[in-house]
Design a protein around this nucleic acid. Structure first.
Lengths: 198, 198
DNA sequence: TGTAAAATACCGACTGGTCGGTATGATTCT
DNA sequence: AGAATCATACCGACCAGTCGGTATTTTACA
């Protein structure tokens, strides 16, 4: 892969990300992406076999990024509750990142509802995160930090809180300080899980 | 409005609802809606000026329905906490209603992101519900049922919980008993808000 | 009450345009 | 030279919305 090629590919992905989140997946044409990226249709179809492929590539890149952030948060934290708090902050940052608007996440999910390949790419990671959080909580219980809540239920509630607040922030960006709201809500939950003795 | 006309209109809306939630808004063509409804394109454009108009009509009908349910729940409940619990059950029913799949709500929101008219129809009700719940909680505080939590924050958390669990249920329908999950989570929150003395 | 006029409801072919994807040739790098 | 990369013209399918015209119901009037 030549440097020029990589550059073109990157431009295409950046343009696609911007346009998809601004206008939506269906409403964005391949021609628009090309023109925004300063490339041609030939270049596009050299790098991506279909329009959906670039969508998938964007999503995988985003998920890989999130994975890295969570991994980092875990390593930087002394204990499980701290790690969960740190991760709630990351969720807030997801929202703050103006480029990767949450709107495109809705697009991902809407598209994934219909397409098996996208479903795999979108839903499998969700399961992974779900089980990851449940595992963290289970560790917290075994380590004595949490009382014996049901790990799966607790994980679902944690995810629901963050997700629900993110969604509300999407509808009403100015309605509240959503990242702060996420952080304080997750803290509330984590304290609720905490072992009174600790 | 003649009975036959009303019937046709209803058929069109039912077909549109089904197709929109199965295939998505953009992916559903007006021709498909017509054929599924056993009507013609002429009939469609006799009843609705644009494709978006039927979408809007569906959403308004759905919201009116939800309003009625909430109103009913409020009237049937002896006190505020009971009313909130009852409403969480309604949220669960929203999910259980197979016809009105949650997917179409995602569609609504995705579309509303881009269109001012839809935004008005989708986001204004959100604000209304938000303030409605905040009002209920405020009443609960004044009535001595709740301790002095911040009504707006509490309402946001309640909505986030229900919304977040609904979204997860959308991705992973078999992953849990989501309606039950919503109910028990909301009960947890409401108990958390409750006045210890009560 | 019977009937003609008017309004409403509906039909389906057609249009102007869009879009994902392809074919083929040009350019750039090694 | 030869492979990788990119450009341009183009194709076939699709689609929202239009339009001229038809069927059905309501209304007006003799």
């Amino acid at each position: 892969m030549q440097p020029r090629s990589l550059e073109t590919r990157l431009q295409l992905m950046e343009a696609a990300l911007r346009l998809f989140s601004q206008r939506g997946y269906q409403a964005t044409s391949v021609a628009e992406i090309c023109s925004a990226a300063g490339a041609s249709k030939g270049a596009f179809y050299h790098h991506f076999p279909t329009k959906q492929a670039i969508f998938l590539a964007l999503m995988e890149a985003w998920l890989a990024d999130l994975d890295r952030s969570f991994q980092q948060a875990y390593q930087d934290s002394a204990d499980i509750p701290t790690a969960l708090l740190q991760m709630s902050r990351i969720a807030g940052q997801v929202f703050r990142a103006a480029d990767v608007n949450l709107a495109i996440l809705l697009e991902f999910w809407v598209q994934a509802q219909r397409d098996p390949e996208l479903w795999q790419a979108a839903i499998a990671p969700y399961h992974r995160y779900q089980q990851y959080f449940a595992g963290l909580i289970r560790s917290g219980i075994q380590g004595g930090a949490f009382r014996s809540v049901h790990p799966d239920t607790a994980a679902r509630l944690l995810v629901a809180t963050a997700l629900g607040l993110l969604m509300q922030g999407l509808f009403d960006p100015q309605g509240a300080d959503w990242p702060a709201e996420i952080e304080s809500s997750v803290r509330l939950l984590v304290e609720g899980f905490a072992c009174p003795a600790a």
